[in-house]
Write a protein that binds this DNA or RNA. Structure first.
Lengths: 189, 189
DNA sequence: ACACAAACGCAAAATATTTGCTTTACGAGC
DNA sequence: GCTCGTAAAGCAAATATTTTGCGTTTGTGT
């Protein structure tokens, strides 16, 4: 058994996946979503349509697969010295990314995926990032660090909600309010 | 010009729409989402496939259209005497509806719709309901009624987020926490 | 090196989607 | 009430897509 990551067999399978993903990315840059077809992607990637159908099932799952990759954070969140600052810095770039035209399409594509767990995996990125920032704040000795749930409910949830339903209000200014509230509230039960 | 609602011409067009919607509902009760096809729906509704394609474009838009109808609140929210009670009562039945198997499918179908404004329209239901409950609380003379934004961010957003990404935590108990927090926070700017 | 299994290619068959043209049915003005 | 104009539906041929069976390739484990 090779030492390589189990998720990336590294053989032909991986090459095909990469070629198809790449083809989707390149075609998406030129064509709108409902001009894209499986046969097109297949030809551009140099594979047979049946390969794509057998592996991804349909176009929706394929583009969702590509978009989920795209949404995975690549670099570590910047350290601004305070939890509020870290949240604002991360949130602003996230909002910018997700309100851009390609970002919105990626979001839509992921939401349209029926495969169980795709959306969950995608939002998991944000949650584990919240956990990271929170740990960082704790190790700094910051006072009144909210629970993870409170960060998710208070910051990630409103952001996501606005991104999905009311793009206009997905702004840095609102983000500041969400963060302030999340950090200000006293415990309630 | 007839006095009937402009949105419901009442003629053949409306009959066809109703027949098609009905066909979708009936078939959805028996078949899983990806067994459903346009030609099937068309036959069951007694129309031609081309009618459906011309009017809805594709199956995703059609089922989203049906689901959005399904999510429109039919009856007025109950009046429990307090804003917290009203929110809890509405939220509990909403969570129950949306965590059910057909509710989840409806949610997915709406999220998968590409038509600009479908999702927005759907979430608009919740927001205007918040406004209603809020007005009610104000006219009761309740103290410390939160702004509409705060209700949306504090209650609707977490609910929606959990329903979409983490069904397990979309519970009445969590709802109670969200409401308590939304009503407890002091103004922050 | 060899054998096994998973994934791909190919091409035919089955379905689904689009489209041009005809027909029907509603609504408006007379 | 009648006729006309228009928007939507039916029909069927033309396209495009998805599915499937089978042979071949390619990676993996022994």
């Amino acid at each position: 058994m090779p030492i390589k990551e189990a998720v990336r067999p590294g053989g032909r399978s991986a090459r095909v996946q990469e070629a198809v993903h790449q083809a989707v990315r390149e075609l998406q840059a030129v064509k709108s979503r409902d001009e894209l077809t499986v046969p097109q992607v297949a030809e551009h990637a140099g594979v047979t349509p049946s390969t794509i159908y057998r592996r991804w099932g349909n176009l929706a799952e394929l583009v969702a697969d590509v978009s989920v990759e795209r949404m995975r954070p690549d670099d570590d969140p910047v350290d601004t010295g305070t939890l509020a600052g870290d949240l604002q810095a991360w949130g602003e770039q996230y909002l910018e990314e997700m309100t851009s035209v390609p970002g919105q399409r990626a979001l839509n594509d992921v939401m349209a995926s029926a495969e169980n767990g795709r959306r969950e995996r995608c939002c998991h990125y944000s949650e584990s990032l919240m956990a990271t920032l929170r740990e960082r704040a704790l190790s700094r000795g910051e006072a009144a660090v909210p629970s993870l749930d409170r960060l998710v409910d208070g910051v990630v949830a409103p952001m996501t909600y606005r991104l999905l339903y009311d793009r206009e209000s997905a702004t840095a200014a609102n983000l500041r309010r969400w963060i302030a509230r999340a950090l200000a509230v006293e415990d309630v039960d």
